[in-house]
């Protein structure tokens, strides 16, 4: 019986990056929920409010890092589950990787464009 269940190969870089991003996300995700549900009600979010937050360097950089790390962590998790755990290879592996990379890039670009509309830092 396995002592411990993990979807990852514990010696790889992807495994390590998954842990590093997780450690960062613990703090940011908890903060995000707290800020947008308890400090500010989600229903009261407005463009002006978001803009005010996004116009400070601390918050802006935190949100951009959040976008990048969450995307990496989530997509890396999915990629690992599909490609390594279920063991697909050859052109199928290439196709899955390509779809995930393209989808992530589109989302990150969209997220960054949105962040730039909110902020007045530039």
């Amino acid at each position: 019986m396995a002592e411990h269940y993990s979807s990852f190969d514990r010696s790889g870089t992807k495994w390590l990056l998954q842990r590093v991003t997780a450690a960062f996300l613990v703090v940011v995700l908890a903060f995000h929920f707290f800020l947008l549900h308890f400090v500010n009600h989600a229903a009261d979010v407005t463009f002006a409010g978001t803009s005010a937050r996004m116009s400070t360097w601390t918050y802006f950089s935190l949100m951009v890092l959040f976008l990048l790390t969450a995307t990496f962590h989530g997509v890396n998790g999915v990629h690992n589950a599909i490609v390594h755990r279920d063991g697909i290879d050859g052109w199928k592996q290439t196709a899955v990787t390509a779809v995930l990379v393209v989808a992530s890039l589109i989302m990150v670009v969209q997220g960054l464009r949105t962040a730039l509309v909110w902020t007045n830092l530039f």
């Binding site: 976008l67 997509v75 998790g77 997220g111 949105t114 509309v117």
Partner: peptide
Amino acid sequence: GWVLIGYLFTHIAVLSTALTGEAAY
């Protein structure tokens, strides 16, 4: 984990209505 990454895609789509303008957001 799969729910969260699914949500993130939706979340960015919703938030990016800000690109259309303040009122849309």
